[in-house]
């Protein structure tokens, strides 16, 4: 990392290019040469999660710095920073300064996460989310579109977090603590799941319902026919 110390401008914390070294490694050394106060952060193309950014924020705060602006080249980092309420400016191809545009960038994309999300983990994406692994109690996943989990959902899932009421949550075992679709919230079911049957949650007549994720049923549903059997409404 290098420092830019132009008089009058905020201090700029530069992340190293990806793969040469990890940004956390040279952070303390770089901060040592700074005056406490506001800093701008150039995250280059690094993909940072909310957790990464939070950690960075705490580290900076402990050292007497505050984050004035995050300049990010990676759409995921932009979203993470926005989720934390930080000032963000996307850098990269179109140098756009309109946050609306960057939020939309990822919306049609599918984000795939491999591995189990454990208590305290958070995953947030603008588009659809596919998780190959479990979501444990205490973990939280949210997506602008559908949340699909090839594993067990026992934490909290939020599909259609920007208001998409057609978003769905699908999991091999759907036993979340809490389920959110668009602006609806429901507690998870408490009965034992049927073995070997994937389940799906969606909004039907203003309520979140859960039912077996039957692919034929889904297709009919998508084509506009009402499903043969209405799902069980949840509390």
């Amino acid at each position: 990392m290098a420092i830019d110390r132009n008089a009058g401008l905020p201090q700029q914390l530069l992340f190293p290019p990806e793969r040469t070294s990890h940004w956390e490694d040279n952070l303390p050394e770089q901060l040592g040469q700074f005056q406490p106060g506001a800093v701008e952060i150039f995250t280059q193309q690094w993909q940072l999660t909310c957790r990464d950014l939070q950690r960075l924020q705490t580290q900076l705060q402990e050292a007497g710095f505050s984050i004035a602006l995050v300049r990010a080249g990676n759409p995921q980092t932009v979203i993470s920073a926005q989720a934390l309420g930080l000032q963000v400016k996307p850098i990269g191809s179109q140098q756009s300064s309109n946050p609306e545009e960057t939020t939309n960038e990822g919306i049609d994309q599918l984000r795939v996460h491999r591995g189990t999300l454990r208590s305290g983990d958070q995953l947030d994406t603008a588009g659809d989310l596919l998780i190959l692994g479990d979501v444990n109690p205490g973990a939280r996943v949210s997506a602008g579109g559908d949340v699909m989990i090839w594993g067990r959902l026992r934490g909290i899932a939020h599909a259609g977090q920007f208001g998409d009421k057609s978003a769905r949550v699908v999991a091999l075992q759907l036993r979340p603590l809490q389920l959110r679709i668009a602006d609806q919230v429901a507690r998870g079911p408490e009965d034992q799941p049927q073995a070997g049957l994937a389940e799906e949650a969606r909004i039907e007549r203003g309520e979140i319902v859960i039912e077996p994720a039957d692919p034929r049923l889904s297709r009919r549903f998508l084509e506009g026919d009402p499903p043969a059997a209405p799902g069980r409404p949840l509390a």
């Binding site: 999300l117 454990r118 208590s119 305290g120």
Partner: peptide, 12 residues
């Protein structure tokens, strides 16, 4: 168990 789960995530 919940705390252990969190710690395992951090260890990872």
């Amino acid at each position: 168990v919940r705390d252990a789960d969190r710690v395992i995530g951090l260890l990872n």
